[in-house]
Amino acid sequence: MLFKKSLLLLFSCFFISNTTEAQTQGSFLHLRVYGDPNPLCKIDEAVFSSSDTTFMISPGSHHLRIWSPKTIMQDTIILVSGNDTAKYSFMMKLLPEYIQYKAEYAEFIRVRNKRFFVSPIWMGITIGTGIFVNKQFAQKQYDKALDAKDFYSGTGNQSKMDEEKANFETYKKKYENFKKIEYGIYGVSTALFANYIRILIKQRKTPVPQFRERSMFSGIRFNAYPDIENKSLRYCLRITF
């Protein structure tokens, strides 16, 4: 009786164990693609779009191709062993023409920003310098000249009047010289402004670098060949992906 119970228990354990193992059996492929969020993947004849996926697949070797508009297509054979999860990660490399486009676009932006902002900065600096010259130098000489005029008007002493006349002329001369400098600076600013307009027109005419993304349809090839037996011309459309 005890022997029968032990045998029954052993059989039950064996049966449950086999059933559990049968539920977890199967081969899986965990595919991870870096470099593009939505690559187009093709395993044998199945096509899907994902950058991180796990799915059941039959064991053995499979033909895997990964494509995206801006990267070099991956074309490789993967091996999936039975009752296991094969993990494959791919780093998509950018197309040379896309790398070149990125460099050209970055250069375009750099030149555009330089054209947009350098001249206004210089214009601001020159105008600020002109105002500074006016406030710090010209205006002071102007005020001193007017003070000399007031001193001249407020005295009855001839020698003092002569002295203030001389002071007035001196300050007036200095004032005029500073004003010439100030207006010269404004002239430079005006020239910079004119040049800025020219640069803006030039920028407007500068073409923006374009990158023509490849589509799946760009891979379509047209073939035509003669069918000698039927005496006809056959046509064929073929996609390389």
Binding site: Y142, L146, Y152, T155, G156, Q158, M161, E164, E176, K179
Partner: peptide
């Protein structure tokens, strides 16, 4: 035009309006 820009009120000031001036 440049000289016109430099013209100021100082040009209008006459230093001969003091009655004690010779």
């Amino acid at each position: 035009l440049f000289l016109l820009c430099c013209k100021s009120k100082l040009d209008e000031v006459q230093l001969n309006d003091n009655p004690y001036d010779l």
